[in-house]
Design a protein around this nucleic acid. Sequence first.
DNA 1: CGCTGCGTTGAGCTTCTTCAACGATCGTGG
DNA 2: CCACGATCGTTGAAGAAGCTCAACGCAGCG
Lengths: 227, 227
Amino acid sequence: MQLIAQIASISLFKGLNTPELEALAMIVTDQSFSRGQHIFSEGDEGVGFYVVISGKVKIYKLSAEGKEQIMHVFGPGEPFAEVAVFAGVNFPANAVALEASRVFFFPRRSFVSLIKENPALAMNMLAELSLRLKKFAHMIEDLSLKEVPGRLANHLLLLADEQDNEKTVTLDLAKTHLASLLGTIPETLSRILSKMGKQGLIESQGSTITILDHDALSDLASGEKRL
Amino acid sequence: MQLIAQIASISLFKGLNTPELEALAMIVTDQSFSRGQHIFSEGDEGVGFYVVISGKVKIYKLSAEGKEQIMHVFGPGEPFAEVAVFAGVNFPANAVALEASRVFFFPRRSFVSLIKENPALAMNMLAELSLRLKKFAHMIEDLSLKEVPGRLANHLLLLADEQDNEKTVTLDLAKTHLASLLGTIPETLSRILSKMGKQGLIESQGSTITILDHDALSDLASGEKRL
DNA sequence: CGCTGCGTTGAGCTTCTTCAACGATCGTGG
DNA sequence: CCACGATCGTTGAAGAAGCTCAACGCAGCG
């Protein structure tokens, strides 16, 4: 059946055999959300976790004044909200579909019993959480040790790497969202992009950015130079 | 034997039976570090993880200009550097003993095989990593959404809570370190402490701080008010 | 066609950092 | 046991980075 195949294609579940995948198929719920729709809110009871099948989901926090910090944007194949499952706490952030999205939901109780029977699944989950932790550590480092141009440069280089394209990068996020992900606001991002353009580091046209001076971006990203 | 008892008292290993604890005792290395001594550096190969037995260990990152961001300070009973074990990567940060410390080291390979045999251990580790993730998420939120006074207020309230003392709090860290943990510098921290004092929120004498206006601190911590 | 969300730009201001100086404390070696 | 150096904490003055507020063009969509 198609469902099993879809579950098997999730990297978190790789290495599982057919009966195990079937067990997962038994407990999963298939959910769809339209653009802008709320998946859960900070403080909701953490009754399970999700895997993005298609679309894009942002996890974010809001300040008292309404400023948003995006913690993560998840795409197809990526699990989110696992923390609530294993720490046994309420969701510590909000989740919204950035575009029409389909997600699989795995309820906590059933999933925990599966994982207890299944060392491979446990190891996959440990690896996943560890990587997440590493990303967060990097984010903390960026926020406190680098200025916005450095964070942006870093992000652009990462994108170039992911997209296998030395020179031309396509922003996968609206600039407003990118600003929030970098821990700043759209105005600041806009100014810095234009400054980078004037100094010949990049060329920016809409969501397409051409990297003109890779080395200068690297220097910015490592905090060795300033704009 | 004493070693087994010490291992058993580590909360990460709670619920394990005697043979399992003995297996851990077989692979552990007992290490001691004096104040200021280096435990590992960013980029070192992640060959295992640690548990603090006594003393205090700080995990931190350095910027290009030498500014430090403390990611975490671990005390007795707390494990650190697990990420390297499960993500199979090099240490992403530096570790130094803040005072004379004793730590247990568990080598990666042996530990991974133990965890594969042992669902309870896996679940404990998952819970541990999840909590860590939650703390980091909170730190990111603080860094990007709150100003320094808010972060400090938050920290003081947390300490008061931990220390079960509504009014009087003892800083467990040198102010220089506290500043680094809050993502700022000693000068700024000092100014804010004195400002909080002038406004009657706290009274600060060395590392002892008396909370005079709990509500005002709460307002600061949630970002609803300013100093 | 108007509306709404996005992106950009300018001016002013707040917050925080930098640089510098100085007093206090603490541990250590003479 | 004292003296010295090092670390720590504090304070002041100046500067930089980024935020707020406001205005405006532009595109997409209902």
